[in-house]
Amino acid sequence: MFQIDRSSNRLSKLERTTFAEVGFREREHLQEWLAAMPDALCEAMSEGQDSLLIIQKEFDGFDGTRERLDLLALDRSGQLVVIENKLDDSGRDVVWQALKYAAYCSSLKKAEIVAIFQQYLDRNGGGDAAVRICEFLGEDALDEVVLNDGTNQRIVFIAANFRREVTATVLWLRDHQIDARCIKVVPYKFGEELFIDLQQVIPTPEAADYMIRMAEKDSEEKSAKGAQRWSHQMRLEYWDQALEALRSAGLERWQNISPSRDNWINSSIGVSGCTLTLIFLRHEIRVEFQLNRSNPDENKWLFDRLVEKREKYEEAFGCELEWRRMDDRKVSMIVCKTPVQGYSKENWSDMIAWLIDHYKKMDEVFSEQVRQLASRMKPGGGI
């Protein structure tokens, strides 16, 4: 750091020192400075959290322990902030200590937080804790205030130097959605004057917004991938049971079909591109007669020939069917479906029985008709 000398239009270097050299102590000095002016800490974080409300110093309200956290605060969202101060060196165990404190604090209820703050105020000039919290959060009444919601407690580490094991762990915590930060506090002297500089080093101010967005994106992707892996496993289990039942029912087309993690399996009827397809969805199962030859015109021609006798086929099938020509797509299909709670395994035996029954009907009503139509069809559709 440098001081500007206006008269000489020159810079004068401030001498970096240590807290030990100038006789400052962690609790008597650094802790008191931050408790009296938490805005200095917020300026260093420069993240839109424009203030912290210190609610306790040397908090030791943990059942069964004698441990004390340095400073406990609330941020503007009503979340607890655990602040751990060290002087010239962070030490090796500061992260472990802070994680324990954050875990302890995660269970604090609103009434407990108000009582903790009230104790602090009673020792430091008085005041009404509930009123002060409402004023800080911009709420009219404590009933409308949510404090310490979920597991989003924040951790702030303060030291002049951070050991590599500390910074590596803080970065790992941030990758796992824990808002941990390192604030570097360095003392300087110039003659008889003393200064301190507070700067956030993890995450760097420039990278903070980016890291938050990336963490949110990563969380979203992990959630989606987890759900995808779960659904894939569910489908494999379902199709394994369904295929066993299809084979046991004497349906030879399914002998060489393997379980799939897709939501469909199909079998050919002996005509290229024409299949009987079984669909397994979370809220629906379907049997589809798909006309999906490489030439769209051939699919539409086959569909049009079948739909001409719709009433006859539905009478033979025993219920109405969905006839989907789908002019904007290559495929056309005839569909039979029913609603289910597909991911409830206790329903699977009934669902599989429904699929087998309606698969057989679809096969009996349409397969031979499509084979006959396909034998008359010229390339490109039509006869």
Rank of each mutant, 00 (worst) to 15 (best):
Y188L: 09
R324C: 04
I383G: 12
R92M: 11
E320K: 12
G61Q: 05
N152T: 10
L302I: 14
F317G: 02
R164Q: 14
N124M: 06
R76Q: 13
Y104H: 03
T17S: 10
I113T: 01
A242P: 04
C274K: 09
R25H: 13
S12W: 06
Q369F: 09
A224M: 15
E144G: 11
R371P: 08
Q341E: 14
Y104D: 08
R174P: 04
V114F: 01
K360T: 10
M377Q: 04
S375A: 14
F303P: 04
A374Y: 05
V271G: 10
G380Q: 04
K309V: 13
C182R: 07
L34S: 07
L373A: 06
P203G: 06
L355W: 05
P38W: 10
L251E: 07
R261C: 14
E237M: 02
T65G: 04
A44M: 12
S223D: 14
E58N: 02
R305P: 11
A374D: 02
K309I: 10
E43N: 14
R181S: 02
R123Y: 03
D89G: 12
S268D: 01
G250N: 09
E244W: 08
R25Q: 11
Y120L: 04
E216K: 14
V307C: 06
R164W: 06
E112N: 01
N152H: 05
Y120F: 06
D262I: 07
G127V: 06
T277S: 04
Q369S: 10
E15N: 11
Q199Y: 02
D149K: 11
R181T: 05
L30P: 07
R325W: 02
L30R: 00
N148D: 07
H283D: 12
L11M: 10
S349D: 13
V94Q: 05
A160L: 01
S219Q: 14
F59A: 08
R66F: 13
D88E: 14
V145F: 09
L194H: 11
P296Y: 08
L243P: 03
W354A: 01
S367H: 09
W354T: 02
E311C: 09
V114Y: 00
S223V: 08
R282G: 06
I285Q: 01
I356P: 10
K309G: 11
M211I: 11
I158A: 00
